[in-house]
Design a protein around this nucleic acid. Structure first.
Length: 421
DNA sequence: TCTGGGGTCCTAGGACCC
DNA sequence: TCTGGGGTCCTAGGACCC
């Protein structure tokens, strides 16, 4: 058996955990730059605030409905996620942290000795008590079915107690008939459209399709999904793997046309990518830089380019990657345009300790120890104090975050205060 | 005025190898 | 007139996830 544990409205719940006055109040969390809605409490969902709603368009509704609006606080969400995952890992030795707010547990042999429903209730109680985050839990024989069970638990908290177990044929069929095709894990917008067009409206309908059709239109991935929904497990718990690509990309708070601004951003993004690379002990052999203008401004000239450059040697040095990123930027930067977004993506990794030396140019041997010192100093202070000269040393650049909550759990000076009356 | 930021996997087709 | 059979690697594009 597998369990899928999912935190309810995770970011909104994190904010609530430290502000009990928000208990019944609708809460939304905004993306970077306070751009659009990326998380909603149930009350906010009930008011019809859609996922991705642009904040400026919904400003009046936020006010009228007394919705509590927060900027995103990733330091807080990341730490809260760790706490939840740590508690969950006590319920099975085999855990896969699937995303910041979701985890699969594999429960081999548990079925014979435990009442899974009670096990789930216990998990839910302990996590909610220990972290303040409400969770929903689905149990089933495959990961895809556990996803389905989880959705049912979440949809009917009163009837299920937010825990649902699919452990027999009758429940499986009933669950599949209830699940809309577009809500199935692995069926996105395109597949949904195509499936609905041939009158496949539920997960059950999908399992009745011929293998050939699924294979032709949805590849082996679709076929695997069918098996999983039939109760034949094809996907196991996966170990944490190193990333194959690492990206640092941002939209800017407004439109910028100066080359100097863009090159500073790109240089910083590259340095951040280098830091992430060092964290997983990889070097990259290639790097991509992209820039776009604001696609929403139809009145302005549009431009969007990216370029990939191969490095002469693998590197994870902030200095080198910044240098190469700026070289790449020069190839695509066009004067006179208003840019809204840029990013750096590093690719084609090799392990840090395997160095393939090149005939003509090699990495500077002084960089690895230098980076090590830089990382350890920055880690020690808990922020990026040591930067390259090409980065914004005066910190002129700032993300718009007007409603940022304190980093309650990771900064001593922002820790929650309790007033004794 | 203002619209997020990360990732993964699969397939087809072309270039190339013996 | 008729022109083999087996691979690999790379890239672009399309789909999906949170």
């Amino acid at each position: 058996m597998f369990a899928l544990i999912d935190c309810n409205n995770f970011y909104a719940s994190c904010e609530r955990a430290f502000q009990p006055k928000l208990k019944k109040r609708p809460v939304v969390v905004l993306s970077n730059n306070d751009g659009c809605v990326i998380a909603r409490s149930n009350e906010a969902k009930a008011l019809g605030i859609p996922m991705g709603a642009p904040a400026f368009e919904y400003k009046d509704i936020f006010e009228r409905e007394n919705i509590f609006v927060c900027s995103s606080n990733y330091a807080l969400y990341g730490d809260m996620s760790n706490r939840v995952m740590t508690m969950l890992s006590e319920y099975s030795p085999e855990i896969e942290i699937y995303s910041i707010d979701e985890a699969f547990l594999k429960l081999t042999g548990f079925e014979d000795h435990f009442d899974l429903y009670e096990y789930g209730k216990d998990m839910r109680h302990k996590v909610t008590k220990g972290t303040g985050i409400p969770i929903s839990i689905g149990f089933a024989e495959t990961k895809a079915l556990a996803k389905v069970a989880n959705k049912i638990a979440k949809k009917f908290p009163d009837r299920t107690g937010s825990v649902h177990v699919i452990d027999n044929e009758e429940k499986r069929i009933k669950a599949l008939k209830w699940t809309k095709i577009g809500d199935v894990w692995g069926v996105g917008r395109q597949h949904c459209k195509r499936l609905e067009a041939i009158n496949v409206l539920t997960a059950y309908d999908f399992t009745q399709l011929k293998d050939e059709w699924i294979q032709r239109h949805m590849s082996i991935v679709g076929l695997r999904l069918k098996r999983e929904l039939e109760g034949i497990s094809c996907m196991d718990i996966e170990d944490v793997k190193d990333k194959q690509n690492i990206a640092t990309t941002r939209s800017f708070d407004s439109n910028y046309k100066e080359y100097g601004f863009i090159s500073e951003r790109v240089s910083t993004f590259a340095a951040t990518c280098a830091e992430k690379l060092r964290k997983q002990r990889s070097c990259c052999n290639a790097l991509m830089v992209f820039i776009h203008t604001n696609g929403h401004r139809k009145d302005l000239e549009q431009y969007s380019r990216n370029t990939v450059i191969k490095l002469p040697y693998p590197s994870n040095s902030s200095i080198e990657l910044s240098k190469f990123a700026v070289i790449a930027l020069k190839k695509i930067f066009k004067e006179g345009l208003y840019y809204k977004k840029a990013g750096v993506i590093v690719m084609d990794f090799t392990p840090e300790n395997v160095t393939q030396t090149s005939l003509f140019s090699n990495a500077n041997p002084k960089h690895p120890p230098l980076m090590k010192v830089m990382d350890s100093i920055n880690r020690g202070i808990g922020c990026t104090k040591l930067k390259l000269a090409s980065q914004d040393i005066k910190r002129t650049w700032k993300m718009r975050q007007e409603k940022l909550s304190p980093r309650y759990t990771t900064r001593i000076d922002e820790v929650i205060k309790v007033n004794a009356i």
